[in-house]
Write a protein that binds this DNA or RNA. Structure first.
Lengths: 230, 230, 230, 230
DNA sequence: AATGAATGAGCCTTCATTCAT
DNA sequence: AATGAATGAAGGCTCATTCAT
């Protein structure tokens, strides 16, 4: 990792902590209310007066803490992307994983998937806001794009290459492998949270079956030994 | 397919045609301008006066054709979901496909993927609007949800089951197979159009390699014969 | 007069007419109300809602005609300076006056004074606004400064020099003569309108006596013939 | 001078000292900042928070010393008018001057002009504020008006009459003589400070030439002896 | 005396919508 | 069908002032 990237990382870590410079209790209430309302009606359709009301503060109080409504949005939505990528930001992320000698690629995917799935559930509204406003807020767009291109993609590439060398993953461009795998999980989460928020299913089982698809695809194995779990 | 669904289908077909009840040239210009601006700034942040200006009509003219701003949105974004699902709406969709005796599942995926990919490219802005406004417009949400659950999912399930019987697709719940496959393609399109809109790559090749992943997964084949297409 | 000045003059004449692009009756009422309120409380302390109310229109109507509150101010205060200087803008101003063979300098001063005094009375509120806002509106400042330096001063200099040659005015820098004379009249008007608005006095007489002071100063004439008019 | 006036005078003297009841260093900084900002943007457009910031104090601190923003203005702009008129407030002003046996009226004018011109230069921003706010603050208006009508005008009338008796000044209503003279000097100062703040000229010379105009007017002397100073 | 977070009224401006022409 | 002036509600934001610390 280049020196420049080192510096970048630090900034990112700070940004990730950024959401925590909430000093007063009122400010916390404002942020909470803003998350609720932004996620419900979208940034543009949300009104500061409604946020103030929900937060139980005067409208002016919002503007004491955030210079503009957009400031409030950025301070809320900005750090969440970094947090989403946080595991990949740890300097030792790749090395740690690669050191575990008998680790299977599948196990790695499972770990990441479960962890991030939990994160998504914990920060659903925030991520909703982020995703929705990214196209309209160049700051968010650039920051998030860079984060995933420079950090997540790079780290995952190292790992994928590692497992390719170990013969656990086919030879294909790492980015395509990452894209496909990520898409499948995102699709899983999206379906779960958006289309069927109420149905409750055995999630571990679902993840396992999805891992099957990722690892072995749709085409049935020629004949005998299918190493699939039931 | 139930009787009720039959009726539904008709409505949908009409809805799909709905965008075509554009009578005057000015109305067409309004729609065009609205698509441009909605997709650029989002529905809530777009102003009817800006639309009117871009369309070269008076502000009042918009409201002669559409009762409200939201009306305009719905009349634009509503039909696009139906059109996106149009191939699956054809009564004969499944039967036609299933009749083609020597069809491979992979070939079917390829055909659908290419067709819909082209559609996405042709209607990028409209789909962008749809996706963005779905969470905030219950009408759009319900309509689209139903469309995919009742039509697309059902039709594809028939087909997947068909190919499972033929031994070309593993035994797994069809919805999971659909979800995974769809996610992969959506991820591919998304990456292409959003993250790297300028890079030009061999798309056919990319589709083929992605089909490889869908069919055979990430795990290398035990030994010799790899039945991959080039 | 240079060519550039010729062009300038035209622009000024247009500006002078500028206040007349009042198209609707409501717009006229807005302008009238704005003059009233700006002059009464000052631009910054005036509120658009108050203006709207006084004009009997909706607040939004103001912004249909004037993009901003400041726009309204400029469109009101901008042309008045030009109108104040209008007599000096006429191309033939100097020549006309200089052609009148037996004209006395004193008569010229009297004519201008009476004319402009009437103008001030007719546009008192507008001039009040102009004078008050000039220091805070660079546009007004520059425009007005240039107007008086380039037009009024120049034209009056020609005339003063003319009368100096005729021996009716002492040899002194024309600008100082102009400044002194103008100051005296401005002081007269100011006193009249600001300090004693209600007292009514014989204005012609007052002007005549003031002309005495301008022409002969405070120092009594040595002895015999005092050519003063009664 | 009436008894009532005597009392008035005392109040005025106190007012004149009023600006000095600045107790703490922070208060001094507030006043300084307020002068700067009031004079720059005008009272209404100035914000207390900006003043606080410039003064380096907390917003609340201003209101500990001045009950309201207007209070701050009055406490700043009020005394300056009195100070401007201070020389005329001295009880012995007229008598002192009139006792100087061989004093010329012209010398008196020169002395006052130079002194007050210096004062204007020293308190330019404050006077700017005063002049600007007088029309909107009845307190300032009444106070200032009374000050000049009751004190300055009265004292100067005595003096003018004195010099009229000595034959140094023509017979004309003293107020008109005062008005004219004052206007000429005000015009001179205004031109100097507002229109051409950067040009540097020989001020003493300028004053002398202006005195010429005041004393002898624009009309050339009949023939030989011109009693003008160089 | 000093602070600065909090207030809420009020400001300028925008906007979807109406309606007379 | 088309216009565009008019509306008035609502929006984001500022500000003088208060008050607990």
């Amino acid at each position: 990792m280049s020196e420049q990237n080192e510096k970048w990382l630090k900034e990112l870590m700070m940004l990730a902590e950024g959401s925590d410079n909430i000093k007063t209790e009122k400010q916390a209430r404002i942020v909470e209310a803003a998350i609720e309302i932004f996620s419900e009606k979208g940034f543009a359709a949300a009104s500061t007066s409604e946020i103030a009301q929900k937060a139980g503060v005067a409208e002016g109080t919002i503007f004491r803490h955030y210079k503009t409504k957009k400031d409030l949005l950025i301070s809320i939505a900005g750090p969440i992307a970094v947090k989403m990528a946080a595991p990949f930001l740890m300097r030792e992320f790749a090395s740690k994983i690669l050191d575990l000698p008998h680790e299977q690629f599948r196990d790695l995917l499972r770990t990441i998937a479960k962890d991030r799935l939990q994160f998504v559930r914990d920060h659903f509204k925030l991520l909703r806001i982020l995703i929705h406003e990214i196209p309209f807020q160049p700051e968010l767009l650039e920051q998030t794009k860079a984060l995933f291109k420079e950090i997540v993609l790079k780290r995952m590439e190292e790992i994928i290459i590692h497992f390719q060398k170990k013969g656990q993953v086919i030879e294909a461009p790492p980015w395509r492998i990452l894209r496909t795998t990520a898409s499948i999980f995102i699709g899983m989460v999206g379906t779960r949270l958006l289309l069927m928020p109420d149905e409750d299913i055995d999630e571990d089982e679902e993840i396992e079956r999805t891992l099957d698809l990722i690892m072995y695809g749709l085409s049935p194995k020629p004949k005998e030994e299918q190493p699939r779990s039931t």
